[in-house]
Amino acid sequence: MADQTVTMRWRRTSETDADALVRRTRCHIFHIAVKVTGSRDLAEDVTQDVCLRLTKNAHKVSTENTAAWIRKTTVRRCLSALREKANISPSKPTTADDPTQDIAVRDTLFRLRPEARTLLGLALGLGYSYEEIAEILEVPVGTVASRLHAAKQAFRNAWEEAK
């Protein structure tokens, strides 16, 4: 009986900790997700998913690596969400996106491949350095530089085609 009480108390404490962690980091997760996806609608889904994962894995995520874990997990979920969306409707923004956005830029962005969009969001939206992006995507820094250059070129090409 005593063991059960201790276990229940430990669970309550863990859940409280996890909830507090999610509350503290939710805005940060959403910020990353919006910048990477360029869509509030997709970012809501990603944030919800990452928060759920954070709650489940709170005991594994130490204080030191929480920020890195959140950044990497959020970007990966963004990439997955963009890929899933690309399979459903490759060139259509979601209806819940902000209507005051620069429509021409948004439409051009939505025509790019998910990998290119993610890179542009990380570099231009969030202002991460090549080293930070390399760490998140687990690729060499040189690869980040070349892929980012290609992504910018793809955006320019799509922009010209849309004119």
């Binding site: 919006v34 910048k35 509030r40 956005q101 620069d102 962005l109």
Partner: peptide, 8 residues
């Protein structure tokens, strides 16, 4: 500019 204007 588009990224900067995004409401986060």
């Amino acid at each position: 500019t588009f990224y900067g204007d995004l409401d986060t």
